[in-house]
Design a binder for these strands. Sequence first.
DNA 1: TAAGGTTACGGCGATCGTAACGATC
DNA 2: GATCGTTACGATCGCCGTAACCTTA
Lengths: 293, 293
Amino acid sequence: MNLSQIELLRILQETQLNLSKAAEKMHVVQSAVSRQLQLFEEEIGSPLFERSGKKLIALTPLGKRVMVEVETITQAKLNIQTIAADFLDSNQGTIHIATTHTQAKYFLPNPIQRFRKKYPGVRIYMVQASPEQLIYQLHTHKADIAICTEKVDSDFELITQQCYQWHHSAIMPKDHPLCTGEITYKRLASYPILTYSFGFTGRSNIETAFKQSGCELDIILAAADTDVIKTYVRLGLGVGLIAGMAYDAVIDQDLIARDLSHLIPLSSTKVAYLKQNYLPLYSQHFIEELMLG
Amino acid sequence: MNLSQIELLRILQETQLNLSKAAEKMHVVQSAVSRQLQLFEEEIGSPLFERSGKKLIALTPLGKRVMVEVETITQAKLNIQTIAADFLDSNQGTIHIATTHTQAKYFLPNPIQRFRKKYPGVRIYMVQASPEQLIYQLHTHKADIAICTEKVDSDFELITQQCYQWHHSAIMPKDHPLCTGEITYKRLASYPILTYSFGFTGRSNIETAFKQSGCELDIILAAADTDVIKTYVRLGLGVGLIAGMAYDAVIDQDLIARDLSHLIPLSSTKVAYLKQNYLPLYSQHFIEELMLG
DNA sequence: TAAGGTTACGGCGATCGTAACGATC
DNA sequence: GATCGTTACGATCGCCGTAACCTTA
């Protein structure tokens, strides 16, 4: 058993068990990886893959269990490299941040700008995705840090910290009836609603709040990002339910924002990363920066 | 980086950073491991060891952090081998059990006998040690499973399960005044006491019970095993406080045992093993056997 | 001077690449 | 015939062992 065999197993998963593609990713010829896989299975004593003819089509139960350990080893090896690089120069490196549109646009600009001043040598890569995908990115090491409001609490492989809390606002054109008077569940529910897609930016809180109130929302448009919602609110399609910090008094002066903290419970945006993943010092500082808002 | 370099680092710790001994353990010449260590440190980019002249005298902070990952990799590699062997034949293998004298003598005989009938192909190695040492044995992979009453709860790397609960008894010669009448804290405390050493077999429960009662015990002999206590009780040195199951009505017919469940809270004997350690099927069955008492 | 570690160098074997072949869609 | 995988074989490079040397208790 050696580390390139472990690496091969990991890459085979990434490539849907395609030996040729795995060989390419490992910068060796295909026959080499074929041979290495044979050697490993020989050493193990049982096949790790189900085969249909010569093709690998699935993991055996044994293979599945072994893959768990392969993941562990891969992560630990990666950690050693990160740790070493961190000791050599803790001011240089890269952060891969995975986040949602709303956080990227309305929350991250300040922390990132502050961080860049302190660590000009650190490259920041940002990937935008749905909360579900964010978690997947963490698990596949495509991102180091995820920042979002939903989903991350339920994954026990993740460490999560709360960055900040916020509440929803309703936005509408200036001439809309909801601009004046008290906003109640019932009143809000009487208009067509535009808000975030399932699994995005506090949508779950909207769900639970209105389920408890007994009123049902008529959601006519669900979007992953706030700007789409604003656009259609401007077109008069209905009332937008968005994250409070996504309303900009200057840019959105044609819209009215009304606080909904009395209707929808606080949402909190969290930062999450893999438990087993070593974060370099600058990443730890980046997280601290996030805490400051 | 490769697995033998990782292995080397692990073994260096075992050998107090002695390269020559590490070479011996790895069945290669000393110059080979010297070279491998150099290569690894070169790849890492910083030294992992503090050196005094040429000798390795300590881990650098970097080295310490890297060792954590080395441990992880070692464990995962071991797991792969165990898993593979388990799939090949789950009726063969070895269990290394670490336990205390009392458990080995008064609790384990039955479960082990039942287990041996089901798995005649599994070799059982038993090591006897103090509870503190048991935990160390688990961490250094010298034991797979530890069985004892004390200590194991506080280690978060361990999974523990309760095997059975028991209470203490007082034992004394037949003509002893304590043979008759109600036993109270005060009365018990008026005699010289013989019981387990600190950190052994429910000793902590004795401590807390008597601390709360306000009476102080006069412990004139503390032993790691019950048989030593019995011996000196027979010699008339005082009253023995032992685990209830350690009194054998036949063998110990010259002694009287009196139940102390009204004075000393229940103790529970647990089985513990490392979280990250894959246990083969037969070991899991062995643990089930323990649960049956 | 014994014990622990490094450096230099030659030999051997593991692993790779080339290439030809087999199977499956 | 394009894709995917295996087998055979020669070449290469990494790693080991021998051996000489250095350093410190």
